Amino acid sequence: MRIDRGLGQRVWAYVCSAPGTYLWLSVLFVTTVALHHMSPHFEQEFLRQRSTNIHELSNDPGRVLLQSAMWIDGGKWLPVAFQYTVFHAQAERWLGTLRWLMVCAAAHVLATLISEGALLRAVQDGVVKHSAVNTLDIGVSYALAGVVGVLAYRIVAPWRYLYLAVVFLVYGEPLLDAPTFTDLGHFVSVLIGLACYPLVIGRGPAWDPKETVSALRG
């Protein structure tokens, strides 16, 4: 099979333009493969020890906040790779690796603490069972939601408002009917991303979808 060297070089250049995104994605690939070699019982216990649930956060918050972002609940890597390419890579190329990482960390850490704090309050009030303190809570979705939020500043008006309307519909609709603590965490993550506006100042011109469509046509 003939390999298009030019295409390969362009793909490699694109990957190198967002090193943090694809390094993180590579770690997730390795950990996902590792999960597929575990028995179901061992996998659940293994992930629970790396989960940002109330019990683990109380014992070792720094460790689990870091480790929980290195695993994917459910083991579906390809959809995550698509999301990283569409959102994370764009944000990292625009903001730079350090600022992109700051958005990811803020969303992951703060949304976790806020959502687990809400769950703890529900446990204390007897709204949910005490066993919820050991709920499995791993993954990278809070960081993703934060990046989705901050990317609103990458788009020119009026398209920015259409983008935000879709974002709030996707992340806000679950809160209207029996929301879970993860639904709350996702919505909070979007708000945290929007609150990262100071990080986007001076990061270059906004993207105009209309200009992109015109360029593709012409």
Rank of each mutant, 00 (worst) to 15 (best):
R10K: 15
D177H: 07
A69R: 08
Q83C: 01
Q44C: 04
A122M: 15
N59M: 06
L120Q: 00
T32N: 03
H88S: 13
Q67P: 00
L144R: 09
A13E: 06
A107S: 07
L23I: 07
L184S: 08
S17D: 07
Q67D: 10
W207A: 14
H37L: 08
V15Y: 08
V170M: 07
G74Q: 05
T21D: 04
G6W: 01
H108F: 12
P174E: 06
H108A: 15
A13I: 00
H88R: 07
T135I: 03
Q49C: 06
L23N: 12
L151P: 00
R50P: 03
F187P: 12
T112I: 01
F87A: 13
S115P: 04
L110V: 00
A118P: 08
G117C: 04
E45L: 07
A165E: 08
D177E: 02
C196K: 12
V128C: 13
L28H: 05
Y142S: 02
L110K: 04
V64D: 00
R154H: 13
L136P: 10
R154G: 08
H108W: 11
I192P: 02
W12R: 14
I54D: 04
S68C: 05
L57T: 03
P158M: 04
V148Y: 01
S189Y: 10
F187K: 13
S141Y: 14
P19K: 06
A165T: 02
S58H: 15
D183C: 00
W159P: 12
C104K: 02
A18R: 11
F187E: 05
V80G: 10
V27R: 02
T32S: 08
V127A: 14
